[in-house]
């Protein structure tokens, strides 16, 4: 089975000049966790994910500490909001390189890529490199598991 059989083809994407505020609105409205960023030819040039957005609210200093189990209350961190200036910046300032798969990629290879790069969603591209869909771990997992009940008993 190919990845094209288990992707969402109504994929929402943004241009690099979209503001962070607008990108956040789209994530909220569509209840999604990853936004591919495309150029004028609809080719993915990067992605911005929920996690990248949330570093504006919780900077990555937590990763410096072996554990934060001893902190029972995050105090002022809980109600620190990004400034208007930050929210009006272009989304490309938070952009991460896009890891994509071709639409004819096998399911297990796609799954392996997601494991390796610790991704939950992955943009799918056509032969020409254009964004044609987006797939997730759940989409791929469901597609794989759906064969099991039909397997020989």
């Amino acid at each position: 089975m190919k990845v094209s059989s288990c992707m969402k083809s109504h994929v929402v994407s943004v241009h690099p000049t979209t503001t962070i505020r607008e990108a956040a609105t789209i994530l909220v409205k569509k209840h999604i966790g990853l936004l591919p960023i495309v150029d004028d030819d609809d080719k993915p040039i990067g992605v911005v994910g929920m996690r990248d957005m949330l570093t504006l609210e919780l900077p990555d200093f937590v990763s410096f500490l072996a554990d934060v189990d001893f902190v029972h209350d995050f105090g002022a961190v809980e109600d620190t909001r990004p400034s208007a200036k930050t929210l009006n910046k272009a989304v490309k300032t938070l952009m991460k390189p896009a890891i994509t798969v071709d639409d004819d990629c096998g399911l297990l290879r796609a799954y392996a890529l997601m494991l390796q790069h610790n991704l939950h969603d992955m943009p799918v591209i056509s032969k020409e490199g254009k964004l044609v869909g987006i797939t997730s771990r759940v989409d791929i997992g469901v597609a794989i598991l759906s064969i099991w009940p039909k397997a020989e008993k």
């Binding site: 900077p59 200093f61 410096f64 105090g75």
Partner: peptide
């Protein structure tokens, strides 16, 4: 000392 300093400052909000 720096990582835990950052944590404490963040909690205090400075």
């Amino acid at each position: 000392i720096a990582p835990v300093t950052i944590l404490i400052c963040e909690i205090i909000g400075i």
